[in-house]
Simulated scan of single mutants.
Amino acid sequence: MSKKVKYYYDTESLAYKKIKPKKGRKFGYAALFLLSSALFGFLCFVILLNTPYFETPKDRLQAREIENLKLRYEILNKKMDQLDEVLVSLEERDNNLYRVYFNSSPIPSEQRKAGFGGVNRYKELEGYDNSELVINTTKRVDMISKQLAIQSKSLDEILTLAKGKEKLLAAIPAIQPVKNEDLKRMASGFGYRNDPFTKIRKFHYGMDFTAKTGTPVYASGDGVVYKADNSMSGYGNLIIIKHGFGYETYYAHLSKYKVRAGQKVKRGDIIGLVGSTGRSEAPHLHYEVHKDGEPINPINFYYGSISAEEYIAISKIANQENQALD
């Protein structure tokens, strides 16, 4: 299709002539078109830069770095999971083996896993796209660091206790105070029993070993004789030995003393003879073990003098709710 030709009427020649466009106007139109196209293209470019559908090389690099950091945090958290398992195992052994062995109180779980109160320690990590991941991971690192510090301190304490192991093992009351061959029977154990005089059920804080008057009574652990007299009501002739590490043992109703107050004794030394003095129904030894001022079941401390079979047998007798002899 041919381009339209425009004419104008020339009054001088009285004829129609073609209108010839000026060359400068063509260039103006072309320049205006190019300028408007450039502006439109720039505007589209700016819009694309601010949409998620267009990424610059720098954006792609930053995105890869963020994903890489996320992966590293995930790996770090998995390693902390493994570290948590090791810590739990170590804490269990510390509380239930090491500290028990050395007669030290276990560290409460609340103390081991206590959080960090007060000021928000992680405020500077807030406000970012991945703040939750970073804050949670940082909290875990801080918590594990605290648990490790507590465990390290505990092991230092255990090490200190271990240095006195020989003294501790010698001090623990670990044998029966009357030999099996000298016993008639183990009459009464630790717990509620019938009182031989009032017939009322009450708590019996030791174990009664029946034997002939004059049967040797042995110190169940190393220590110092604290008392050897009959000043405590109901016990008759009584010996109390302080073993250290919070342990004390009582030997009551004796017919005769073989030691005096202030004397050092070794496990297995004869300290007195069985009798029936004080509040006693028949010749026997009333034996108590105290730890930190509290009476505890003596049957747990005979591992140094009886076999497993003998322990089972004596346990059955001790757990029967029979009548005590004192």
Rank of each mutant, 00 (worst) to 15 (best):
L48G: 06
E288I: 01
F190V: 01
A228M: 08
L76D: 06
L61Y: 02
Y311Q: 13
Q320Y: 10
V178Q: 02
I306Y: 12
A228K: 04
R93S: 07
A30F: 15
N230K: 13
Y311S: 11
Y8L: 06
D269L: 05
Y257S: 02
G246D: 07
C44T: 13
K26H: 11
K113W: 14
Y235H: 08
V217F: 00
L273I: 02
C44V: 15
N194Y: 14
N103Q: 06
K123R: 15
T138V: 10
E181P: 00
K4F: 04
E132S: 13
T137S: 15
N96Q: 13
L34V: 14
K242V: 08
Y311C: 03
D269E: 13
I317P: 00
Y101E: 07
Y250T: 03
L125E: 07
L169Q: 08
E310T: 04
R140V: 03
G28R: 11
K123E: 09
I299L: 14
E181C: 02
D208Y: 07
S255G: 12
F301W: 12
L90M: 11
D195H: 08
A170N: 12
D129W: 11
E181T: 08
G28E: 09
R93E: 09
I19Q: 08
Y311M: 15
E55S: 15
Y29F: 13
N194I: 14
R185W: 03
N96H: 12
K153A: 14
S37W: 11
N300T: 04
S154Q: 04
T160H: 13
N194G: 03
L32W: 10
V274Q: 00
F209H: 03
A38R: 02
D326I: 07
F116E: 07
G117M: 09
F209W: 05
L83F: 10
K3D: 14
D269K: 03
F301E: 01
K199C: 03
T137Y: 10
S109C: 00
R260Y: 09
A318L: 07
F54V: 10
R112G: 00
F45P: 00
E248K: 09
G262F: 07
T56Y: 02
D84P: 04
E55D: 14
D222L: 06
S104P: 00
K22S: 12
S2C: 05
K266D: 01
R112M: 15
G24H: 11
I239L: 05
E65F: 14
I158S: 04
M186N: 05
V46E: 12
Y235F: 15
F102R: 02
E65Y: 13
I240Q: 02
Y16Q: 04
S307I: 03
G117F: 15
D229V: 06
D326Q: 09
S131C: 10
V217C: 01
G278T: 05
S2M: 13
G246I: 13
D222E: 14
F116I: 09
V134F: 14
N96Y: 13
V265W: 10
A38Q: 04
Q263D: 00
S255W: 05
V289E: 01
E124N: 11
K17F: 08
